[in-house]
Design a protein around this nucleic acid. Structure first.
Lengths: 335, 335
DNA sequence: ATGAAAGCGCTAACAG
DNA sequence: CTGTTAGCGCTTTCAT
């Protein structure tokens, strides 16, 4: 069943059917109405691949995320998908599982599918795949790489402002020995975040103890391991900030197992504000990264390339803010 | 850049390029090698929409889930996506957010994209959309609807066996007053599950107190509400089984807030075994629904329609098993 | 306001 | 083994 069939039934040409479907005003209302009825009756659905072939655009965006198991990403996907549906666009999703190699093939698949743009929320990217994209005139929007160029925009997270708030909050609670459990080594996104932490500490007039700065992996296990290292120190910190909520939850779990009280013995601050952070015990104080806004900015960034996929890139910023719950409390001398 | 361009550069015809790309053995190795080199050098990526148009198949499956916020689904998606990537297929994902109306448009979008099949893990489906799919010769695989027909297979969860194990486990712990917090009313999947609970009780020689059977919504809030109702009873149950882990976690939270000890006062059993259930406190005893296997069965079911999208449907079954953790314990008289 | 026809890029039958 | 060609379903000038 194609447009010609509909045309035949309606006694018009396929061009008219096409015009009706696309809401052209070059069709006499009565004709349009009639064609619409035939379409309705036959349950006709146009073939998108023909349109894509003709247009060279698919109304589809690719979305690449590192780890769908981190609740932050489903929450983001939820917002992003909502926007796409509203704008009548589709989403091709892929997961990297933190493997650089997977990105290559993922991007290839997206090129084959003629996506109109790619949102890359995974940090493990190399220049090769990026060039493949730009070479094929497919715009790319990255997260927190802080580099833009033709066809390449970036959405950076203002980690610093949230960090600053959090450090201030901890300082007010009389904490001085503040530790940080970060992300995997070697990712620019991890670097930006440690730097933001260090800077916030300096600005608050606190000094950064290198032993207090640990590396994690953005997952619960990394939080546990980092926390174990911190607890093993002869002079452990009294507060811990984590690169994301999962890491914070890992730290929480480890302390729970070891009988360390939160926030009585050690305060914890997460990052992201995933739904989970509110159902944990204790509910997690965390730096909120607004998902809806992030999704909107990603869409806006992608959409900005619609007329010209090779237009100059734009650096967007999404800000963060501290959400105080129960995992942070005043400093108390450890027994 | 299309195959003709490659052909021109390589000094062959576009048919040969096509054959090389598709690994036909009707090409002289030397020619193939040469063409491959040109493809490599030019970073050529074929246009999938042309292939889809030609074939009428897109190597894409649609996946419809109710709620990406329930960790069970990301975990499922992760497994499913892994299988698809391996088989060189793509995934078009959509969320219903429990709205029947969204299914309609979602299915339409999938029809437009020429998906080769749809995996429907959302229960809120009506016959209309199903017929739209089958009418367009797109096979559908549902979860726990327990109906099959031409082009329609079903994967049912053997809720009963896990249920039976769980009830036995609770009985062994001397529980008699066992409650159940179910899913949203009016979904066949919810019905199957309550029935399995009731049957398991009967088989264990326990009687089902109607006041102990509550309705939830598959989310944390439903678990909280259901649990609140149960605690409000003059004679509350000593054990609670939930339709899924999120519901169980809701129950857990409410009890935590009200100072009810788990498992000392009340035992709790979940269903799904999401990763979260192991990091909760207390770690949740739950009936495990194996995600990898579920994903494999869905793929198999979809793939079975490859030659003939209108072939007879098959009823598949995925079994479940009890995972005992710390949220269940021996009955103790309440103080 | 409507129709005829070319062409998007790929594949497969057919011819050689 | 390789090339020629028709056609998948849609959109869009160009004609009328």
């Amino acid at each position: 069943m194609d447009m010609r069939d509909i045309a035949k039934i309606a006694g018009v040409s396929s061009a008219t059917v096409s015009r009706v479907i696309n809401g052209s005003n070059l069709v006499r209302p009565a004709t349009a109405e009639h064609v619409r009825k035939v379409i309705e009756e036959t349950n006709f659905v146009p073939n998108g691949s023909a349109t894509t072939l003709k247009y060279g655009k698919s109304s589809t965006y690719g979305l690449i995320i590192p780890d769908i198991t981190n609740p932050f990403f489903p929450e983001f996907i939820h917002c992003f998908e909502g926007i796409l549906v509203e704008k009548n666009r589709d989403m091709l999703m892929a997961t990297t599982d933190f493997h650089v190699s997977k990105i290559q093939q993922t991007i290839r698949r997206m090129l084959v599918r003629q996506v109109d743009g790619v949102a890359l929320l995974a940090a493990e990217i190399e220049t090769g795949p990026i060039e493949a994209l730009l070479h094929n005139r497919v715009p790319l929007v990255t997260m927190d790489r802080r580099m833009v160029s033709r066809g390449l925009s970036d959405v950076s997270i203002d980690f610093a402002s949230g960090m600053r708030e959090a450090v201030k909050h901890l300082k007010r609670l009389r904490h001085r020995k503040i530790a940080y459990i970060g992300g995997s080594a070697g990712l620019t996104i991890s670097d930006h975040r440690v730097e933001a932490f260090k800077q916030a500490m300096v600005e608050a007039g606190l000094k950064v103890n290198p032993a207090y700065v640990r590396v994690g992996d953005y997952r619960i296990t990394g939080g546990e391991a980092g926390m174990a290292e911190l607890l093993g120190l002869k002079d452990p910190p009294t507060a811990v900030m984590a690169v994301n909520d999962l890491t914070a939850i890992g730290a929480l779990r480890l302390m729970h197992r070891q009988g360390v009280g939160v926030p009585d013995d050690i305060s914890v601050v997460g990052f992201d504000d995933i739904a989970l952070s509110d159902i944990m015990y204790p509910p997690l104080t965390t730096i909120r990264l607004p998902r809806q806004e992030l999704a909107e900015v990603f869409f806006k960034a992608l959409d900005a390339f619609r007329k010209d996929p090779h237009a100059a890139g734009i650096q967007y910023v999404v800000s963060t803010s501290l959400v105080i719950r129960d995992s942070t409390g005043p400093l108390r001398p450890r027994s």
